[in-house]
Computed example of a mutant assay.
Amino acid sequence: MAEPRQKPDFSREYEAHRAGEVPVAGVDEVGRGPWAGPVVACAVVLDPARVPVGLDDSKRLSAAQRERLFEEICASADVSLAFAPPLRIDGHNIRQATLWALARAVAGLACTPRLVLVDGNDLPPVPCAARTIIGGDGLVASIAAASIVAKVTRDRLMGALGAAHPGYGFERHMGYGTPEHQQALAALGVCRHHRTSFAPIRTRLAETPTA
Rank of each mutant, 00 (worst) to 15 (best):
P23R: 05
V24C: 04
V24K: 07
A25R: 12
A25G: 13
G26N: 12
G26K: 11
G26C: 11
G26W: 10
G26Y: 13
G26D: 11
V27L: 13
V27P: 09
D28F: 04
V30R: 01
V30N: 01
G31I: 09
G31W: 10
R32M: 11
R32C: 12
G33K: 01
W35N: 04
W35M: 06
A36H: 01
A36P: 02
G37Q: 05
P38C: 11
P38S: 13
V39M: 12
V39K: 09
V39H: 12
V40S: 08
V40G: 08
C42S: 12
C42V: 09
C42N: 07
A43F: 02
V45N: 11
V45L: 12
L46D: 03
L46V: 06
D47E: 09
D47R: 08
P48Q: 05
A49Q: 15
A49V: 12
A49D: 15
P52N: 00
P52F: 01
P52A: 04
V53L: 14
G54R: 00
G54Y: 03
G54L: 01
D56Y: 05
D56Q: 08
S58E: 02
S58R: 02
S58T: 04
R60Y: 03
R60D: 03
R60F: 03
L61A: 03
L61V: 03
L61P: 00
L61T: 01
S62N: 01
S62G: 03
A63S: 02
A63H: 01
Q65H: 00
R66C: 01
R68Q: 11
R68E: 09
R68A: 10
R68W: 04
L69V: 03
F70Q: 09
F70I: 05
F70T: 06
E71K: 01
E71P: 02
E71Y: 03
E72T: 09
E72D: 15
E72H: 08
I73M: 01
C74D: 00
C74H: 00
C74Q: 03
C74R: 06
A75H: 04
S76P: 09
S76K: 10
S76T: 15
S76R: 13
S76N: 14
S76Y: 06
A77S: 15
D78S: 09
D78V: 07
V79C: 12
S80A: 15
S80R: 11
S80V: 08
S80T: 07
S80H: 09
S80F: 09
L81E: 00
L81F: 04
A82I: 00
A82M: 04
A82S: 01
A82Y: 02
F83W: 15
F83E: 14
F83M: 14
A84H: 13
P86Y: 12
L87F: 08
L87D: 14
L87C: 10
R88Y: 12
I89F: 07
I89S: 06
D90Y: 07
G91C: 06
G91T: 00
G91S: 05
H92M: 05
H92D: 06
I94P: 10
I94F: 10
R95K: 14
R95H: 14
A97C: 02
A97H: 05
A97N: 08
T98A: 07
T98F: 08
T98I: 08
T98S: 12
T98E: 08
L99A: 10
L99K: 10
L99W: 11
L99P: 10
W100V: 15
W100K: 13
A101I: 14
A101T: 15
